[in-house]
Design a protein around this nucleic acid. Structure first.
Lengths: 186, 186
DNA sequence: ATTAAAATTCTACACTGTAGATTTTGTAAT
DNA sequence: ATTACAAAATCTACAGTGTAGAATTTTAAT
C-alpha cells in the first residue's frame, strides 16, 4: 500500500493523470453502474485525490461534456442512398450509446453547440437530403425525431417495470415516423 | 419567534401537517425555483422539521409521485370530434404542466401504473378512436408521440441557450406528426 | 390507569460537489 | 546557480443532500 504522495509527482512526462484517463475511467464506471459516478468514485478508481480532477476539468458538468464528446464520435456515419435504412441505423446508434451510458441525457441536452445532439442533426440532414423537403418541413421532421429519441432514451433509463425496455423497442415508432415522411404530404 | 415544540402538537384535529399541505408547498417551491426543492427546503417553508415529512411519505420519490398524481388531474380532457384539435390541446396541456413544474420527468417516467404518462395515453387513445387504426399502428403512434413529448419537455428544461424554448415551439413537430397520422399509410 | 398509536423534533451518518490553501516538482530567466 | 513561476497533486473544510433511528409529547383506546 503506497501512502499518498503530496505535490507534483516526480516522473518527467509521467503525470499520473490526464483528461483522457479520467474520461475513460468515468466511462467505464458509468457503464458498469448504469449511472453517472460521483467524482469521488472516479478519483477512487484512479487512486487519486478527488480534487485532482479539478486540474483537468472546471467542474463535474465539464467532465461529463468532455465524456459526451468523446463517446459520440462513435455515432453511426450515414452513407448510402436508402434514406430509411440510414436513418434507422443512425437512430439505433444514437439510442445504443445513450443506453450503454445512461445518465448523460441532461448533459447532451445542455450542450447546444457541436454537442452530440447537434452532430446527430447534421447526419440526419445529410441522410434526409434525397427527400428534398422544404426547410420548414425538414426542421419539423428533425425536431420530432430528435426529441422522440431523447424521450425514448429517458424512458429506457427510468424504466423499472419488469420487462426491460431496449433499443429494439423503438423500431415500430421510428418506422411509423419514416412512413409519415415518405408519404406525399397534402 | 416560536421555538420548536417537540412531540405531537396539542390541537385536536389540528395537526400542523398533512400530505396535502406538503404537496402544495412542494408544488409552489417547484414552480418558483424551477427545480425540485430539497426536503429541507420544503420543511423550512412549512416551519417543520425535515423528518416530519417522513411521517406522510416513505421517501422523497414517494412525495414527488404524489405530487405528480395531484398535478396531472389538471390534464386536458379531450371531448370532441376534431381529433387533430383534441390531440393538439392534450399535448399542449401535458407540456405546459411539465414546463410549469420542471424536474418531474423522471418521476413521471418511473410511475408506470396509472401515472401521468398512463393517463395521457388513455386520453390519447380516446381522442384517436375515430381514426380506426390497427392496434399495432395505434401503439406505435402513441409511443412516438409520448416519447416525443417527454423529449421536448426535457429539452425545455435543459435549454440554456439565450432564446427560451416554450411549449409553443412544439406545434410544428406535432402538426407534422398529425399529418403523418392522417395520411393514408402505404 | 395503562397502553398504544400518532405526530413531531433531535441527532447522526454517509454522501455529494467544490472552494481554498498547501505541498512538491519541473522549467525558464537571470 | 538562484530565483521565480507554473504544473500537478494532496489536504482540509464547508454547505448541502436524503434518511435511519431514537426521543418526546399528545391523543385515543382499553
Amino acid at each position: 500500500m503506497t501512502t499518498p504522495q503530496r505535490g507534483r509527482p516526480k516522473g518527467q512526462q509521467a503525470s499520473k493523470l490526464s483528461s483522457e484517463k479520467i474520461i475513460i475511467c468515468a466511462a467505464e464506471l458509468l457503464q458498469q453502474q448504469g449511472k453517472v459516478p460521483s467524482l469521488r468514485q472516479v478519483s477512487r478508481a484512479l487512486e487519486v485525490d478527488p480534487m485532482a480532477l479539478y486540474h483537468y476539468f472546471d467542474n463535474k458538468a465539464a467532465l461529463l461534456q468532455a465524456l459526451c464528446l468523446q463517446l459520440f464520435t462513435q455515432l453511426y456515419q450515414p452513407s448510402g442512398r436508402d434514406f430509411r435504412l440510414q436513418i434507422q441505423r443512425l437512430c439505433h446508434s444514437y439510442l445504443q450509446l445513450l443506453s450503454d451510458y445512461p445518465g448523460l441525457l441532461e448533459t447532451v441536452l445542455s450542450m447546444a453547440d457541436s454537442g452530440p445532439a447537434q452532430v446527430f442533426c447534421q447526419r440526419f440532414e445529410q441522410a434526409l437530403a434525397p427527400l428534398n423537403l422544404s426547410a420548414a418541413q425538414q426542421e419539423a421532421a428533425r425536431d420530432l425525431l430528435v426529441d422522440y429519441l431523447h424521450g425514448f432514451a429517458l424512458s429506457m433509463q427510468c424504466n423499472r417495470s419488469g420487462q426491460p425496455l431496449t433499443v429494439a423497442h423503438s423500431s415500430a415508432a421510428i418506422n411509423l415516423y419514416l412512413d409519415g415522411l415518405s408519404a406525399p404530404n397534402r
